[in-house]
Simulated assay, not measured.
Amino acid sequence: MRICVPATSANLGPGFDTLGLAISLHNQVSIKPSKFHSVSLKGEGANNPVLKDNNMFIAIFNDFYQNLSNKKRHFRFEFANDIPLSRGLGSSSAVIVSAIASAYAIEGIEIDKDKLLNLALAYESHPDNITPAVMGGFNVATVQDNEVKYIRKNMPKTLKAVVVIPNRPISTQLARKALPFKYSKEDAVFNISHSSLLTAAFMSEDWDTLKLASQDKIHQKYRMKQMPELFDVQKTALKCGALMSTLSGSGSTLFTICLNEDAQRVEKELKNKFPHFKVLTRDFDNDGVTVEY
């Protein structure tokens, strides 16, 4: 059995803890019955022995599997990770979603995506990453009475995601501590209006509005100050014709949307100017988590 979950980019500028979309950059885990417990890890995190011994996926999987089956079995877990760790691309959400989905699938119990999403909420209180990880596409999400309420839309094939992944992380915990305790009414209204406009632009496919609508006064500048090069990355992407360029989650990745015909030029310029960062161009993922037998 194989579970596949996409990377996600959250916030998208002004949509703090609310907006997110899925990118065709995936973590996969294959699970097989075994005489004893074993773990193999390829790709991102493969050189970190702690991930094998203290694996969040296996802890969540075991909790759900034992509750569903009331028995103990041994499995071989084979992880193939393409989502960078601690870079603002939803690696933790991918682990949570895939672990829960795997426990149900290994028992042959069908689980609809709405239920899966709300089970994941117990491990990740903000819905901006877990929602696109489960559902795919572009998502507007909030939490009401311990349930995720969301509206989603497929992303078109005419757009590409260009992600600039720095060679060091920004701690999510430290990134939240960098934010002010209070905001002015003007800044709050600014973000409400821009987040609303950004949502409308995605839903109506008015791509020319993305650059204006993706502006933010709540979190980006405070977080990007921890890695000042990101301001230059953002400026370069927009100058090269990107439709929008925002901090992905709490960083350190910079997420950019381009028209297909502009993506190669934007990627090339970013690679030339920031050779110490990884630059990838990907399609968007409209499937979310998938299970294959």
Rank of each mutant, 00 (worst) to 15 (best):
R2N: 05
V5T: 07
S9P: 01
N11I: 08
N11T: 01
G13H: 10
G13V: 13
D17S: 02
D17F: 06
L19Y: 11
G20Q: 00
L21T: 04
L25F: 02
Q28A: 14
V29P: 01
S30R: 11
G43D: 00
G43H: 07
A46Q: 02
N47F: 14
P49F: 07
D53K: 15
N67I: 09
S69P: 10
H74C: 14
H74F: 12
F75L: 07
F75Q: 04
R76E: 05
R76H: 07
E78S: 08
G88A: 06
V97K: 01
S98Q: 10
A99Q: 14
A99G: 08
A105F: 09
G108C: 06
G108R: 08
D112S: 00
L116F: 01
L116M: 05
L117M: 10
A122W: 03
A122P: 05
Y123D: 03
P127I: 01
N129F: 04
T131S: 12
T131L: 06
G137Q: 09
Q144L: 14
Q144A: 13
Q144K: 15
N146V: 09
Y150V: 05
K157P: 04
L159C: 10
V162K: 02
P166H: 11
R168T: 11
P169F: 04
T172R: 03
Q173M: 13
R176Q: 07
L179C: 07
L179T: 12
S184Q: 11
D187R: 02
D187F: 04
F190S: 11
N191C: 02
N191P: 02
A201H: 09
A201C: 09
M203S: 11
S204Q: 14
D208F: 04
T209C: 09
Q220M: 07
Y222G: 08
K225I: 09
K225D: 15
Q226S: 14
Q234Y: 12
K235N: 12
T236P: 14
C240E: 08
M244I: 09
M244S: 09
M244K: 10
S245F: 11
S245E: 08
T246C: 15
R265F: 15
V266K: 02
N272A: 12
K273C: 06
K273A: 12
P275G: 00
P275V: 07
H276E: 15
K278N: 12
L280E: 15
F284I: 05
D287P: 00
G288W: 00
T290I: 14
E292G: 09
